[in-house]
């Protein structure tokens, strides 16, 4: 038996083992629950060129509920939620902070210029380090941050109006009362 003919099956075995592990131990839609109701991780990032003075952990504890949106110029689903963010900004419903994830400064700036800027401040996470601390697994994700800077909830995937009304609006009201 020649070993080189076994390369395909061995490759497949490796893939199958990881798949098996992934099936039982990984859940792509799971929210890392340990993060919810904990303080946001420590970070400090520079802004997307031309879009604000940068973003750090201290900017998130504002005394009111705010959103931290993870976005990227290469992310299609981000374009889907973007008009809704623009609307939230226009109606001044809630302050939104933008965490630009694994992007290039020029691409991010162009993207914001082209589609509009809904963010109060932006920060560039060029290497995705801050994303790891936040447990970001994909883009877009939106974190709901409480008045004292704790993470209240996290929405995976594009944020839509029904989801906003259902999950985030009650948190906004709760903070007011």
């Amino acid at each position: 038996m020649q070993l080189r003919f076994l390369v395909p099956v061995l490759t497949f075995v490796a893939i199958a083992v990881v798949m098996w592990y992934a099936l039982f131990n990984l859940n792509p839609t799971e929210i890392p629950s340990e993060l919810v109701s904990k303080a946001a991780p420590e970070f400090s990032l520079e802004a997307v060129p031309g879009y604000g003075p940068g973003l750090a952990k201290s900017d998130l504890a504002t005394g009111k509920v705010v959103l931290l949106n993870v976005f990227a110029s290469w992310c299609v689903a981000c374009m889907v939620e973007h008009p809704f963010f623009m609307e939230l900004r226009e109606q001044d419903t809630v302050d939104i902070y933008g965490l630009n994830y694994k992007d290039t400064p020029t691409a991010a700036a162009e993207w914001l210029q082209r589609h509009g800027n809904p963010y109060k401040r932006t920060g560039m996470d060029l290497k995705g380090r801050v994303g790891i601390d936040f447990g970001v697994y994909g883009v877009p994700e939106t974190f709901v941050i409480g008045p004292d800077g704790t993470i209240l909830d996290k929405v995976i995937g594009p944020l839509t109006r029904p989801m906003f009304d259902m999950r985030i609006r009650p948190l906004l009201k709760g903070a007011e009362s």
Partner: peptide, 20 residues
């Protein structure tokens, strides 16, 4: 396509591989 699963399985890091 499989890289995010592999990385997650080995290091626990969650990534998405995009068009770039």
């Amino acid at each position: 396509t499989l890289y995010p699963i592999f990385l997650d399985a080995f290091t626990g890091a969650k990534v998405s591989v995009g068009p770039p």
